[in-house]
Nucleic acid binder design. Structure first.
Lengths: 229, 229
DNA sequence: TCCGAACGTTGCTCTGAAACAAACTCCCGG
DNA sequence: CCGGGAGTTTGTTTCAGAGCAACGTTCGGA
């Protein structure tokens, strides 16, 4: 395995208070791997042997019902820790992580988590902070799901993706990873048919532009209105 | 304020590894209060100044949408920590906690959290463990909400309450705190009308018995079937 | 004891979105 | 260059469940 460079971790919240030597230590314990689009990094119910940091790419975190329906719980962007079930004393992962685009991630054995929290100042604090944000985010999705009509939910989902991983382009905000209609419906608990109709309608109204696996929000403000009103 | 007895905390997971003296220390820093049914312990968006432990009673943790709809995110039973936003570096509470029945809770200043985690072995571990369970629970509710039809969702909600706080009685499992139809609909994202119809139908089929603010599951097995199938 | 409010039930209507169906289009590999 | 599969669009049908309305019941307080 080629030696990993320290610049990979510097500046990321969980490691921001550490010096070069400490980051070196941490990297020396890490494994790294590339995942093709569509590959699972870990699966729901499997032993939580590792936790991860996404260096590049995008992930979907997915739960599947006994009936085979699946829904996307959250997305992971570069720089975020994920699969931190071990930190919560879980012995299995509660969800599945799938590469939405070609991705690269570091991984550490679950055993070193307690080492890290004990030895590296700020690591525990920052990790639990992201955990708190994630919890809040999921609660928000839940309330949304329970109270809002389909169109608002879809608008919210698109906005959330645009916020988390949007790139500014001349035409508007472009979502930086491949998204199918099916994926959006898995985020919102509808059917791909309904999502397709909505996106077509929005395209007519000049709010979004979308081709297959690809969405650009041309009029974010109008979409915000749709999501709130 | 009367002096609190050590027996209040002994045996509870976050404190189970501690000795009498340590529990004494912890109790000496605690405040205690009684809350009448319907009172808020803390409110969404307010400064997260304290964290709490429920000694007696039951709580609903609730989120409200800008539109005024509300949904019940989770229930808290005696012995559980709650309002642990401070532990996640949040400066405001992400939800509102309401006493579902007359309740008694201890509280500590948010400032002492880091003390507790540093000084008392097992405290951090156990706290984050419950946090992990809660996260998993919410994810489950979310998938349920997104994929299941109303009847199944209501069945799941009733079962969850029965599991968490059910008392065995000659007639079946009795939910130990007051629940209105409205409450159940707030857990499941439907209307009280639909919940009322479902409970009536189930009563006809001998699956539950319910009076106002009160539900007894007489045939848990049938309800499980409804919730899965 | 009576009143009023909170909680629950039930019937009816109507609509949003799922289900079903059938093409169409893009993309990749042979 | 062609074939096939994955992803998308669009039309039509159907129905669960929300919305509305009206009434019944229980309970606590004056």
């Amino acid at each position: 395995m080629p030696k990993l460079d320290e610049s990979l971790l510097t500046g990321l919240p969980p490691f921001s208070q550490l010096n070069r030597a400490q980051i070196r230590e941490i990297l020396d314990q890490a494994g790294s791997r590339r995942y093709e689009e569509g590959t699972a990094i870990f699966r729901e119910g499997h032993d939580a042997e590792s936790f991860f940091l996404l260096l590049d790419g995008y992930l979907r975190v997915v739960r599947t019902t006994p009936g085979g329906d699946q829904i996307i719980v959250l997305h992971i962007s570069p720089g975020q820790l994920f699969g931190i079930a071990p930190a919560l004393q879980r012995d299995t992962y509660p969800a599945t992580a799938i590469a939405a685009a070609e991705s690269i991630a570091l991984s550490w054995s679950a055993r070193v988590w307690s080492d890290f929290t004990a030895r590296y100042p700020g690591f525990a604090t920052e990790s639990y902070k992201t955990l708190g944000q994630r919890l809040g985010q999921i609660q928000e999705t839940l309330t949304e799901m329970a109270t809002q009509a389909v169109e608002k939910r879809v608008a919210c989902a698109v906005l959330r993706m645009a916020n988390q991983s949007g790139r500014k382009t001349p035409n508007g905000i472009e979502i930086a990873f491949p998204v199918t209609r099916q994926n959006v419906s898995d985020m919102t608990g509808t059917t791909l048919h309904t999502v397709s109709r909505l996106l077509s309608a929005w395209q007519r109204d000049g709010i979004v532009e979308s081709t297959r696996k690809h969405i650009v929000v041309t009029d974010p403000h109008a979409l915000v209105l749709l999501s709130e009103q």
